[in-house]
Structure formats: structure tokens, C-alpha cells
């Protein structure tokens, strides 16, 4: 694990690289309008920029800091990259490659992306899920499915996967809706490994949500200090101050939950961090939207990009509601609510 100073340097380097790339028009996704026609065509991504500063090397050497810094920065800048695939692949204990993509469970869902009838090479696999834009050109695709004896890892050629680009709320990211109905090489997957891969992805997404929350809060704060009404900045009105305070507390909650998740490393603390991130995203989005008032409701102000990114991220690898249900069922099955982290 890096010390505070090293991590700060890494953060500066990553954000600097992203800022330079975005200024040149790379990685902000396509188009700034909402017209459907704006977003078809080549995606421009930050993958090469991140590769250039050693993303895969640092993912292996210092995963906690690499994931925390990179995903936090992506969230804060609305940066578009497909590095989530690398995190999940590494979580499965495999070697990440730029042409290796994963199918995530469908939006909001907790659990595997599909089912397999049987085992071994050529087993029929049916899956429905979500993916980053990496899947569009991936040579190979991985899907975690539920087989007869528990979780299994299905490996397929990229061409066997049916991926459709989603526009939806956040057309800039390049999310893909994925259908799989094909034979695949199927290997049994240790449930612990399956859970670890999900946990790795959940921690990464929580970091990305935290970054987005910090940006939304900064935008709302800056607006409150600059906007003058009734003889001075609206930041002096307690009603707005309290909204911003709520948003700040919510963002801080994500940070602490991630500290606990990394220190613990387990799947429960990762699920809790993801759930807290999703709940906090709602609070920050609501409060920031209100403070930003009229201007924040226009596409002239960048807030809507962060808002829409956050809303989609809320449900990747489990929505707050689905995670709450799953956690509750597990607590009932254990007949306790474990403390998970100690002093």
C-alpha cells in the first residue's frame, strides 16, 4: 500500500493525464447534446491514456491505490474508460488484457449474469447483462453464470456475444446491453473467487461514485458562493448551507466505507460500500440539483453529466435496494449482523 504522499502524487499524475486528454477531446464520450444522432460512431476513451501511465502494472502491484485513484478520478471528471473489465478479470484471479471483456449482471441486479446447462467445453450458456464498450471489439468475453453445481466461468469468443450500445440516461459512457445464447467453455468457479470478483468491481464503482459526488458537491458549492440574490451570495442562507452539509456528509460516508472495505477485503464490506455509495449518490444528486437551481437544470452547466453518470453507476453490480435485500437475507441466514471491522 502506498503512503499518503505517494498516493497524492499518483492522484495528481492520473488527474493531470485525464485533464490533458479531455482538453484534447479524448475520453469525454461523444457529443455534448442529447440528440440520439450525436452518439453513434467511434468511442473515444481514456484507456490508452491510462495504459500510458501504467494502469495494468499498478493494478497488479498496488491494486488498492490504483483502483482508488483511477476510479475516483474517472468519477470526478466524467472520464470514460473500460478499466472496470480489468478490475473484474483481476478479481477472478486472471490476467487482464485490453481485448478481454466481462459481462456484468444486468443493471441493479445482485448475482450472476445468467445460467449454464451442464459443464465443460461447448455448454449452452444463456446470459443477459451489462458491459462497458470494450465488449464491442473484444476478442474474448467472460461471463460468470450459475451452473448446476454453483457459479461457473464461461469463456466465449467476442463474436458470439450480442452487444447493443445503450443510449439511455448516460449515452456518453458507451454502456452495452448484452445477450448471450451460445455454447461456451465452462469451468467451475470457486464461489469465493466469484464473490471476490464482484467485490473488486463494487469497490471500484463505489470509488467512481465518490469522485462524481465530490464534483457535484464542488459545483453546487461554487454556485452557491458565486450566485448573488437578495444582496449577497446565496451561500449565506442556512437552508442551502444545510443541503450542502447533507451532501458533504453523504460523500464522506462513501470514503469511510471504502477504507473499511479495503482494510477488510471481503465481499460484505464491498457490498456495503457499494450500497452506501448508491444511497449517498441519491443524497448528493438531490441536494446539489436543488442548490444549483435554474442554471443546474440546463445543459449549459456541466452538472447534468455528473448527475446522469452517477445515476447509472448506482445500479452497476447491485442497486442499493437489491443490495439491502441481499444483505438482509444474509443477516437472517447468519442470524447476526457482523461488525466486520474492528479498531
Amino acid at each position: 500500500m502506498m503512503d499518503v504522499a505517494e498516493r497524492a502524487l499518483l492522484d495528481e499524475a492520473v488527474r493531470g493525464a485525464i485533464a490533458a486528454a479531455q482538453a484534447a477531446g479524448v475520453g469525454v464520450g461523444l457529443g455534448v447534446g442529447l440528440g440520439v444522432g450525436d452518439v453513434d460512431g467511434e468511442d473515444v476513451l481514456l484507456d490508452d491514456v491510462l495504459a500510458g501511465i501504467g494502469w495494468l502494472e499498478m493494478l497488479e502491484a498496488e491494486p488498492r491505490d490504483a483502483i482508488g485513484v483511477v476510479f475516483g478520478a474517472l468519477g470526478a471528471t466524467n472520464g470514460v474508460a473500460t478499466v472496470l473489465d480489468d478490475v473484474v478479470v483481476a478479481g477472478l484471479g486472471l490476467t487482464p488484457r485490453p481485448d478481454l471483456a466481462v459481462v456484468l449482471p444486468r443493471w441493479g441486479h445482485v448475482g450472476t449474469a445468467g445460467v449454464a446447462a451442464g459443464s465443460g467445453p461447448g455448454t449452452a450458456v444463456e446470459a443477459t447483462g451489462l458491459a462497458t464498450s470494450r465488449i464491442a471489439a473484444a476478442a474474448e468475453v467472460l461471463v460468470v453464470v450459475t451452473g448446476g453445481d454453483g457459479p461457473a466461468l464461461a469463456t466465449l469468443p467476442g463474436a458470439a456475444v450480442d452487444a447493443t450500445r445503450v443510449h439511455g440516461l448516460d449515452p456518453w459512457f458507451g454502456w452495452q446491453r448484452v445477450q448471450v445464447a451460445a455454447p461456451a467453455d465452462l469451468t467451475p468457479l470457486d464461489p469465493v473467487v466469484a464473490a471476490a470478483a464482484v467485490a473488486a468491481g463494487q469497490r471500484a464503482i463505489a470509488h467512481q461514485i465518490e469522485g462524481a459526488c465530490r464534483t457535484a458537491l464542488d459545483q453546487a458549492r461554487d454556485h452557491a458562493l458565486a450566485r448573488e440574490q437578495f444582496g449577497g451570495p446565496v451561500a449565506r442562507f442556512q437552508a442551502l448551507r444545510h443541503r450542502l452539509a447533507e451532501a458533504f456528509v453523504a460523500a464522506e460516508a462513501i470514503e469511510s466505507a471504502l477504507l473499511a472495505a479495503w482494510d477488510d477485503g471481503g465481499d460484505l464490506t464491498a457490498a456495503l460500500a457499494k450500497a452506501i455509495a448508491a444511497r449517498s449518490a441519491r443524497v448528493v444528486a438531490t441536494q446539489a440539483q436543488q442548490v444549483l437551481a435554474g442554471i443546474g437544470f440546463t445543459t449549459d452547466h456541466p452538472f447534468h453529466r455528473t448527475l446522469k453518470r452517477m445515476m447509472v453507476l448506482e445500479g452497476v453490480l447491485g442497486s442499493a435496494d437489491e443490495l439491502a435485500l441481499d444483505l438482509g437475507r444474509r443477516a437472517i441466514a447468519m442470524r447476526r449482523v457482523p461488525t466486520l471491522v474492528e479498531l
Binding site: A253, R279, A324, L327, L340
Partner: peptide, 22 residues
């Protein structure tokens, strides 16, 4: 319904435990 209520309470409780630990 009970599971979801318990899960939401756990999420809130963990949130404050994580912060207090920090």
C-alpha cells in the same frame, strides 16, 4: 420486506461504524 428493512438498517449502521473507525 423484513430482509430489506434489516438490510437498510445494516447499511446505515455500517456507514457510521466505518466513519467512527476512521
Amino acid at each position: 420486506r423484513a430482509a430489506e428493512a434489516l438490510g437498510n438498517a445494516w447499511i446505515a449502521l455500517h456507514s457510521l461504524r466505518a466513519r467512527s473507525r476512521k
